[in-house]
Design a protein around this nucleic acid. Structure first.
Length: 440
RNA sequence: GCCCCCAUCGACUAGCGGUCCAGGUCGCGGCCCUUUCAAGGCCGUCGCACGGGUUCGAAUCCCGUUGGGGGCACCA
């Protein structure tokens, strides 16, 4: 059977409706609890989740732990926090590899009894086949073959009795009745070893799908120097979970050549493993920012304000929520990330210290503007605009020349939300005070 | 060194033999809008790694080269 036929077979399999399939789809994600959740790992998580949800199957969370140190417990919590924040829910309880060590050992002993494994310096090694090839039909790569002579007799159980990853992981897949193993491509070379182990215990081989890695912007593996790589860092920077999920889904997968913005439901509906590309993708922060901005702008005003308040709270700001809510509409169309909010809105919550140089000799406008606003009724963006434009006209100033000094005096910055709305929100008293301060 | 994976604009990708002198999105450049910054609108720039085949016809299939990446632990 050639590669084309093999891929076709999987396509057919996956396209069959649930009702006619032998068993429901079940996938798993098996992170090692060594630290925070890495964004590249999240993309693999996401593919598993989308696949499971698409077919109405199960998505399990399994922790590949080997010891019980305290850091591990914290990492497990952090992983779950990150997943919840991203909105990736799993089915059933979180399971731990640690809990099945005895089962693994028992299987290893049986393997030794069967002559399929042997003891070596206190460890138990698996007897890999010596000739022929071990092959499988990868859903994203087609047929992959490894010459068996290159397969080493891997250690199943260490001298101290603990099973190794290459033994425990496939066994757990068997016990959990995992139907599709969807993991990153750096596991490709583990697969033939795991296939032989699964065969040795007389179980069925799952379907494998090795999805591409996610690299940094230099094409190298994503690392610290690429900026944010942990989920918590993206959260801190003010990315919206939906935007991040949408962006991640597009790394190595596309429903067609056109669509880029998709809701969670649409992602679930359209996702398919067959359309996952085999080549690695680079993480593009600029595109993520653009997408996040799109999501921010698409948010209903109330939801945006809510997201802002939540984020500010998480970051330790004690800014008045009522005022934040009022300020939100002024900046919604400007932000790419929530973390940009303070720079725009700080003047509403804290004193300003305009750089005299930025006032650019605007003292005359400032004085006249102050006068125009002093008695203005009502004090609304609309009336403020009218009054201020009138001032500029009287002084023969172009908008750019006239408004900028006022902006700097009132907001303390050359960049701000709309001037008139900002002044209205700031209130007459504070505005006049800042104008006065800037004049003197 | 050995094994494996990958190869379309700067980036993410569409393309599964003719409809492609290659389409979409981000970025980048220009213009418009404009009280700053953004946003938005319009226009534009840029690519099938190379060499052999196969075929009437190749970005699409095959082989090789080159270039990336991953793996070769009693780590996961």
């Amino acid at each position: 059977m050639d590669v084309g036929d093999e891929r076709e077979r999987h396509r057919n399999y996956d396209r069959r409706p649930m009702s006619v399939r032998a068993q429901p789809v079940r996938v798993r994600m098996a992170p090692s609890p060594t630290g925070f959740l890495h964004i590249g790992g999240v993309r693999t998580f996401l593919f598993n989740w989308l696949f499971a949800r698409h077919y109405g199957g199960e998505f399990r969370l399994r922790i590949e732990n080997t010891d019980t140190s305290r850091e591990v417990a914290e990492a497990v919590d952090q992983i779950q926090d990150s997943l919840r924040w991203l909105g990736l829910d799993w089915d059933g309880p979180v399971t731990f590899q640690l809990d099945r060590l005895d089962d693994c050992r028992r299987v290893a002993e049986q393997l030794v009894a069967d002559g399929k494994a042997y003891e070596d310096e206190g460890a138990i090694r698996f007897r890999m086949p010596d000739d022929g090839v071990t092959a499988w039909d990868d859903v994203v790569r087609g047929r992959v073959e490894f010459p068996n002579e290159k397969l080493e007799d891997v250690v199943l159980v260490r001298g101290d009795g603990r099973p190794t990853y290459n033994f425990a992981s496939p066994l757990e897949d068997v016990w959990d009745e995992i139907t599709h193993v969807i993991r990153a491509e750096d596991h490709i070379s583990n697969t033939p070893k795991q296939i032989n182990i699964i065969r040795a215990v007389g179980a069925d081989i799952p379907v494998y799908a090795h999805v591409p890695n996610v690299n940094g912007e230099d094409g190298k593996k994503l690392s610290k120097r690429h900026g944010a790589t942990g989920v918590d860092e993206f959260r801190k920077a003010g990315y919206l979970p939906d935007a991040l999920v949408n962006f991640l889904a597009l790394l190595g997968w596309a429903p067609d050549g056109e669509t880029t913005i998709m809701s969670r439901d649409e992602l679930i509906e359209r996702f398919s493993l067959e359309r996952v590309t085999p080549s690695p993708a680079q993480f593009d922060y600029a595109k993520l920012d653009w997408l996040n901005g799109m999501y921010i702008r698409a948010l209903p005003e109330e939801e945006f304000a809510h997201a802002l308040i939540l984020w500010l709270g998480e970051q330790g700001y004690d800014w008045d929520a009522v005022l934040v809510r009022k300020a939100a509409p002024l900046v919604q169309e400007k932000l790419a990330r929530l973390e940009e909010f303070p720079a725009y809105a700080r003047f509403l919550f804290e004193d300003v210290h305009p750089d005299p140089a930025d006032l650019d000799g605007g003292a005359p406008v400032l004085a006249v503007a102050r006068e125009a606003l002093a008695e203005l009724e009502p004090f609304t963006a609309e009336s403020i605009e009218t009054a201020l434009r009138d001032v500029l006209e009287r002084l023969g100033l172009k908008p750019r020349q006239g408004f900028q000094p006022i902006r700097v005096a009132v907001t303390g910055s050359k960049v701000s939300p709309g001037l008139f709305e900002s002044i209205e929100l700031l209130g007459r008293e504070t505005t006049l005070a800042r104008l006065s301060a800037a004049v003197s």
